[in-house]
Simulated scan of single mutants.
Amino acid sequence: MKKKVGLFFGTFNPIHIGHLVIANHMVEFSDLDEVWFVITPQSPFKTKKTLLDDHHRYQLVFEVTEHYPKLKPSNIEFNLPRPNYTVHTLVHINEKYGNTNEFSLIMGEDNLKSFHKWKNYEVILENHDIYVYPRISEGKMENRFEGHGRIHHVPAPIMEISSTFIRTQIKLGKNIRPMLPDAVWKYIDHMNFYR
């Protein structure tokens, strides 16, 4: 029996309690056995000053998931050709781990609304389930995704916390500690990140 693994993609810059709540909810309240946080690497063409180096963001996810056996950090995209397209990552991850795992995508409703613009989205949907969590967002859903057999809506809590907001508030000297897992707060504080 293959393990059902949900892939949760993001820059996680930084990972915050919203990410953790969603990932944990997916693994506890759906049929997924594990959730892997797939950390998107820094694009060589877009060097954003606010984006922490890949290894720091991996370390933050590692620190957070250490206490959650069903949640894992993944740096699979770090060594793939850029730009990273999900469809290519899925091919690679299936070649590497597909014998023992069956992979699905985890995305917010806002991403599902623009999913038809993704590279080879039909191929993704043909081969992978998508687990969708609610988001407050504008625009309407593409009809082709309504009632689709591979799309599963999971009634997770709505988490309106963003990494952008967190970075901005740290720079402004605000205390946003409750929005971050303790290990993340300590690491960021110790390294003096985002200031």
Rank of each mutant, 00 (worst) to 15 (best):
F8D: 01
N101P: 00
P155Q: 11
I158Y: 07
G149S: 15
G108E: 01
Y58D: 04
S104G: 07
V64N: 00
Q169G: 00
W36G: 06
H88Y: 03
P69Q: 03
V27C: 13
H152G: 10
M1I: 03
H190E: 14
I124R: 05
S43N: 15
M26W: 14
S43H: 09
D53L: 01
M1E: 06
G18A: 12
K70G: 01
L80E: 13
Y121Q: 11
K48I: 04
G18Q: 01
E138D: 12
E102P: 01
I106G: 11
N143L: 08
I158Q: 10
W118V: 03
Q169C: 04
P81T: 15
K96F: 04
F8S: 02
I76S: 07
K2Q: 13
H190Y: 13
G10Y: 03
V132W: 04
I106T: 11
E138P: 02
M26V: 12
F103E: 01
E102V: 04
P69H: 07
N127H: 14
Y194T: 06
I161H: 10
H92A: 13
G149L: 14
V38L: 09
T65P: 09
H25C: 04
A156S: 14
M179Y: 15
E77Y: 02
E138R: 03
M179S: 10
G147R: 03
Y194Q: 06
V21D: 05
I176M: 15
Y133G: 08
D182I: 10
F165E: 15
A156R: 05
S74P: 01
L90Y: 11
T40R: 05
N127A: 03
K2R: 15
D189R: 12
V35Q: 14
V61D: 00
L105P: 14
Y133L: 14
I39K: 08
M1V: 05
F103L: 01
A156V: 10
Y133V: 13
L105N: 11
N24T: 13
T164R: 11
Y133S: 09
K117T: 15
D31F: 09
V27F: 03
R57G: 05
I151Y: 15
F9M: 11
S43L: 02
D110Y: 07
E126K: 14
E142R: 08
K3L: 13
I136Q: 11
H55P: 04
Q42R: 12
F62C: 03
W36M: 05
E146M: 13
Y187P: 04
P73G: 02
E95W: 06
W185D: 14
Y133A: 10
K48S: 11
V132S: 06
D129W: 04
W118Q: 07
K70H: 07
I130W: 12
